[in-house]
């Protein structure tokens, strides 16, 4: 039974002691091997994006996880427990067609928050991307104004090659600037058709069958969210560099990468793109 133990005897002392020890050793080794195997299969099946967002969401503060209905004042203090994917949220489904939500969404005037323009012809994702339906049924995906100010003129966005499958809340693009790298989450489910020609959009995406936009922000709630984002950014920069960076009543600088030291720019990118 225990041939590798010198002088082993069929004695209760040996059996109990070595039995417990080897059971523990086997359980430890088995658990590690199981974790390794599951990791191997998850990477092979390309589940790493989902896992990335799951772990990143867990690291967000309660303030950052605030529910979209908390932003509009419908459910004050509520935190999201759906990883910002409202498609499976019963509360969101219940509130979606309520009068208040309708009123919030019905805001027709293009909003501007501290100089950040928010055209209302598109849906916004909480990772600072937007989605607009094109005339050919394709979806156009781009960075919102804050995202573009972080990207600046000398930054680069690494786009996924045509044919890449995108899934909501999984990393789709990579922003690189000043030695800082941040993952940008996909706002849609679909297949990349190719880069968008001209305009503000980054890519054209063929939507997946049954794709819905209920998880994306629209109208007035998008403006309320942007207020929170700027507040969050200001607080985070104050916390990370020890000084407040945006004065009340001011506007956000046109090119944040030029205004902020590298460390603060890194913090800002992480916060904006939810890559903490």
């Amino acid at each position: 039974m225990f041939p590798w133990v010198y002088g082993f005897e069929w004695h209760p002392g040996y059996l109990v002691f070595l039995g417990v020890f080897f059971t523990v050793a086997v359980v430890v080794a088995g658990t590690v091997l199981a974790a390794l195997w599951r990791s191997f299969t998850a990477v092979r099946k390309k589940h790493d994006g989902r896992i990335y967002w799951h772990t990143a969401f867990e690291e967000l503060t309660p303030e950052e996880r605030r529910c979209r209905h908390a932003l509009t004042g419908e459910l004050p203090g509520r935190c999201c427990d759906q990883e910002f994917d409202c498609r499976g949220c019963r509360m969101h489904a219940r509130l979606l067609y309520s009068e208040e939500a309708g009123a919030q969404a019905a805001v027709a005037e293009p909003a501007e928050v501290c100089g950040i323009s928010m055209p209302l012809d598109r849906y916004y994702h909480r990772g600072h991307t937007w989605v607009r339906e094109g005339e050919d049924g394709m979806l156009l995906v781009g960075l919102d104004d804050l995202g573009r100010r972080l990207l600046g003129s000398d930054g680069a966005v690494e786009l996924p090659p045509p044919g890449t499958e995108l899934r909501v809340n999984e990393p789709a693009f990579r922003l690189r600037r000043n030695g800082v790298e941040a993952r940008i989450l996909s706002p849609v489910d679909g297949t990349v058709e190719g880069p968008a020609a001209g305009g503000e959009a980054l890519v054209r995406v063929r939507p997946a069958a049954g794709f819905r936009t209920v998880h994306l922000l629209r109208g007035g709630e998008a403006a309320a969210w942007m207020w929170l984002e700027l507040d969050r950014l200001q607080m985070a920069l104050a916390a990370s560099c020890g000084a407040s960076t945006l004065a009340d009543g001011g506007v956000v600088a046109g090119d944040l990468g030029r205004c902020l030291p590298k460390r603060d720019f890194d913090t800002a990118c992480g916060l904006a793109f939810l890559d903490v």
């Binding site: 658990t31 998850a42 990477v43 799951h54």
Partner: peptide
């Protein structure tokens, strides 16, 4: 954690 394999292994270890 920028490397997918590391991220996924961390997640799976955390689960057990």
């Amino acid at each position: 954690k920028m490397k997918p394999s590391m991220l996924v292994f961390e997640y799976n270890l955390h689960k057990v």
